[in-house]
Write a protein that binds this DNA or RNA. Structure first.
Lengths: 344, 344
DNA sequence: CGGCACCATGTTAGCGCTAAAATACTATTT
DNA sequence: AAATAGTATTTTAGCGCTAACATGGTGCCG
């Protein structure tokens, strides 16, 4: 049980540095640096000797030193509500697929749907001096807004567009339009007594539901008693519970819009337990179209959002800006698709 | 559309630094540094003046400079297969809840269940010179093993224990014991023709299945034809498909063990579509006991693993080692619990 | 064959911070 | 009042790397 450490928090010594590699390969430190970062700018033979020395010494570059000297961190900070939300996995993959090949690292953090957590996370991230940043949503604390403005780095706000102007750039969809589309679909199908379930009521869920309700209101079918929301995190269990509560107050419902698919799964399970036939007795729809939504019985009608493309586009915009380009379109709406299935 | 950048990749100037704060508050840079990192070591009045100056100037510390000067990154690297796997969310929360209060940042990355990806990810992470590292699983490439040994930082290998000695420390459960426990449970319940479904066959899934099969073999009930595995990623859809394939070759099955809950969901859905009653005609069990497993119909029998505690314990061991402590117990088995429900 | 362009490489200086040593200042003791 | 111990603060020196400039060598033109 050795201590496996060489004096943390003291002046190092003993660690292999660029100069060690330089000495071993008989060139200057600067040349080794170039061999690593711009290999095309050094001769073939030097590159080989440097590579051999790196292997022989087990050299590991020090990013802190690189960032400090280069005044550039090669890092993109990504702020999302929660990695445990399957929705963001695809977004993250999209970002990753652009950032990694471009030599950028991703610094990722969760706000857990809290504005305070978002603020402190962004403050923390700014100490890394990221070269760019991707943040979920258009709403944020004023102090955070000011910090981001002061940081003066390219910023993309993702997931939604349209509610207000972004601080810098934005990519997403209109959640109120998506909610409205689902409402119109349900009206077309002839549903009259339509309920709404919401949890984890972040701004985007609120807008989905608002868009949905506005359309119902136009048709004269809105009813506050049929809307049940909670700030609790969305879970499958909660979906069942909320549906039970909603049916207690409104036994005559013929359709329910759930503001995300997890709630919808719970609602479907609850119907199964109560022997309520979906969609014949009660139609159910979700939002996000997760992987399992096509498999559940009955398969779930949902709104498919271009998650991967949101991430990819956001990262691409960042990369272009980091390359010095000036973008004419700073707001990109990628649209959505209503995926009609058996449940509604 | 301003460029929002002050010459990236050139010598900075213009950014607010410690010395700016020092000048404004009339003390030396070192005192400001202490006011930030060891506030109890500076006088009350100095601390206040420094805080005012920081606010006034909008000073943001530079972590790269801190890491370089302090020879310590205040960062823990965490290597997991996939954030999109719900299993790891709880582990991550456990790690976070220990690291954040202790002032450590988490650097998180996915291997996507590939040894090569793991190798390159760990190499990349080592350039950050993390103060400690948490890696999933006991198996890794030899080159990676050597790199980690050379890095000489505290390391915890999580999720499984028992198959081999850890490089440094480990926390987890025995997956073969858990598989065996499930097999014994099924035998007790009188099932005779038991099938096995596996996907995303990482080492831990393999061990679960091996443990399961070994017990069946002891009872003389093992049959290779009843085991169906694939390297494809686990999805709900895949669970249904695999069950369909398995039933085609073995129409007489009376129980199926799925190596994770997602597959089990898909299997249950498939049974619903085929009007196979679970568990009367076919019993189904999963592994991990995800949130939805208690809600699905019928509720899913599964193995509950102490995910949060694995993360928490791993991080605590790391913190203690970083504080210079020598741990006598470097391998911790946190055990599991068979959660019996309606599906088996 | 001198002059110029172009490339590969080297030199110098410094990024923003903190460890360690040095110094000033304040009790407390003798 | 001098010696001692302790605390608060400053000074010095670099952490490992790269931007910017300097240099030396090569080929190519008129």
């Amino acid at each position: 049980m050795t201590t496996r450490q060489s004096q943390p928090g003291s002046r190092s010594k003993g660690r292999v540095t660029l100069s060690d590699v330089a000495r071993m390969s008989g060139v200057s430190a600067m040349t080794v640096s170039r061999a690593l970062n711009e290999p095309q700018r050094v001769s073939e033979q030097v590159r080989e000797r440097v590579e051999q020395a790196i292997d022989a010494l087990g050299y590991i570059p020090n990013r802190a030193a690189r960032s400090l000297a280069g005044n550039r961190s090669h890092t993109i900070a990504v702020v999302i509500p929660s990695v445990s939300n399957a929705v963001f996995n695809n977004v993250i993959r999209g970002i990753y697929d652009v950032c990694a090949p471009a030599g950028y690292e991703m610094l990722m953090g969760n706000t857990y749907y809290s504005v305070q957590q978002e603020s402190s996370l962004i403050s923390k991230f700014l100490t890394h001096h990221p070269d760019g940043m991707i943040v979920t949503g258009l709403d944020m604390a004023d102090s955070t807004r000011r910090q981001l403005e002061a940081a003066a780095i390219p910023l993309v706000q993702i997931m939604e567009v349209g509610t207000s102007a972004p601080l810098d750039m934005s990519v997403g969809i209109s959640h109120s339009d998506a909610g409205a589309a689902m409402a119109r679909y349900m009206l077309e199908r002839g549903y009259k007594r339509i309920g709404v379930l919401g949890a984890q009521m972040d701004y985007r869920s609120q807008r989905r539901i608002q868009g949905f309700i506005d359309v119902l209101a136009e048709a004269g079918l809105a009813d506050d008693k049929r809307v049940l929301t909670t700030a609790e995190p969305s879970t499958v269990r909660l979906g069942g519970q909320l549906l039970a509560d909603l049916l207690l107050a409104n036994p005559d419902l013929d359709a329910v819009f759930c503001c995300n698919d997890d709630l919808a799964y719970g609602a479907i399970y609850e119907c199964q337990r109560r022997h309520i036939r979906v969609p014949q007795q009660l139609a159910i729809a979700g939002f996000n179209d997760l992987e399992g939504s096509a498999c559940i019985n009955p398969s779930l009608t949902s709104i498919q959002t271009p998650l991967y493309d949101i991430g990819k586009t956001a990262a691409q915009m960042l990369m272009r800006r980091l390359a010095g380009e000036v973008l004419q379109q700073s707001v990109v709406d990628l649209g959505f698709r209503l995926q009609a299935r058996d449940s509604a």
